[in-house]
Write a protein that binds this DNA or RNA. Sequence first.
DNA 1: GCTCCAAGCATTGCATGCAAAGAGAAACAT
DNA 2: ATGTTTCTCTTTGCATGCAATGCTTGGAGC
Lengths: 240, 240
Amino acid sequence: MTLDDFPPGTLPAEPMVPRVDRASPSVQKVTRAEELRLQLADEIVRGTLAPGAPLDETDIARRFSVSRTPVREALRQLVTSGLVEARPHRGAVVAQPSIERLKSMFEAMAELEALCAGLAAERMSAAERHGLEAIHEELRVLSYAGNPDRFHEVNERFHNAIYAGSQNGYIAEITLATRVRVQPFRRAQFRNLGRLAKSQAEHDRVVVAIMRGDKQGAAAAMRAHIELVRGEYEIYAVSV
Amino acid sequence: MTLDDFPPGTLPAEPMVPRVDRASPSVQKVTRAEELRLQLADEIVRGTLAPGAPLDETDIARRFSVSRTPVREALRQLVTSGLVEARPHRGAVVAQPSIERLKSMFEAMAELEALCAGLAAERMSAAERHGLEAIHEELRVLSYAGNPDRFHEVNERFHNAIYAGSQNGYIAEITLATRVRVQPFRRAQFRNLGRLAKSQAEHDRVVVAIMRGDKQGAAAAMRAHIELVRGEYEIYAVSV
DNA sequence: GCTCCAAGCATTGCATGCAAAGAGAAACAT
DNA sequence: ATGTTTCTCTTTGCATGCAATGCTTGGAGC
């Protein structure tokens, strides 16, 4: 047995940060295939392209006024990063994992986030700790103000700060990748303000533990947070 | 007159150029790009293509008697899976992570393997436990017999069995992917028989803990094992 | 002799065209 | 009506060719 045939759809090499603003002329440098990859990933993560939605090479090529070649490249990369499923001769679709697999991914996310939190508790610099507290405070205000979209945005900054705090780029990467992959299956997450407040309380435990340098506590608090969050989600896995 | 002149649907249906039979008719199913991906991944993991080695599209295309298109596809996938680095307009090379990054990956591997071991301790079925013990026994014999290659092979089966025992396909996947990515940087791992014996002793602690259903113990033992293994490796990270 | 610039050139990126291969539909037989 | 078979046609896979991009190197100026 060898390691050569590792399963497809393993890991994205670079974090797939969903780009919001494509109008920015700063990123002129980008290739067409890359643009497509980011754009499609973005639409999938945001839910514009729902799980199961068909991704026809020719259609996409027309839609973006490019040839099929860069579209193929983009789709291939999305397949290996797990956001897209390619069924031979039946077209590619937005990935639609089984419930079993979704459970796997959520569990992995809980463990990975917990790992990051634990490492962050041990390793965060003073500056990073201040930064985390600042974001946490920002979230506290937002949890009152109650703008779910904005909350969601800052919430991501919160988690990203903890990933970075682990001082382990690779772990941060696979954690983010996992988060991105489950993103399409988290829907009405911050719709009600009750969830916002609860989330805030859970974050609080995480932050306190990190500030104390309490590795175990931080990991446990984060694990609990993710498990709870997961419980609130509706998990979509449309048939089969 | 070209084939364009035929209205759609009037083209001759039968194959005009009967493909010469490939050597092994069993793997007819596989696409060229996939073949290339597996072959290149294999050579990278085995060390035939050393980290930093250039991967010229045209060369590879010539070498495998295909056009650049499938080569590009294969390289792209290897990039997203982390085995290859693509530097814009400077060619692709076998991935050559910095020492910092290698440390990250090794740490991640230790944590992921520990996670798998812990979950396996809780979740492995009776059959799986028997299977693991069988592999462990096989390794014990091999550690005496002292065939490093064979030991390496069965050792992989050992770890894979634990991944599977976690009952979490996603975690198993990212753990394996991580193992694959660090593989090129593990060299003289089982060269000396002393290491084989030590490895066996460490495995033993892991197996005992798993059999007892001792989650913490299994995780700790596995983490220790990986950390030690890592200490024995020479970590190649050539410059920069 | 060193630095800066420019033109050449290797390499990548994309488009286009064609062929193979299934999947689905239609037609046929039972 | 249902199962089967053939046929069509969409979709994928690959090759080839051209264009653009920026690395590189050779030359000119300081």
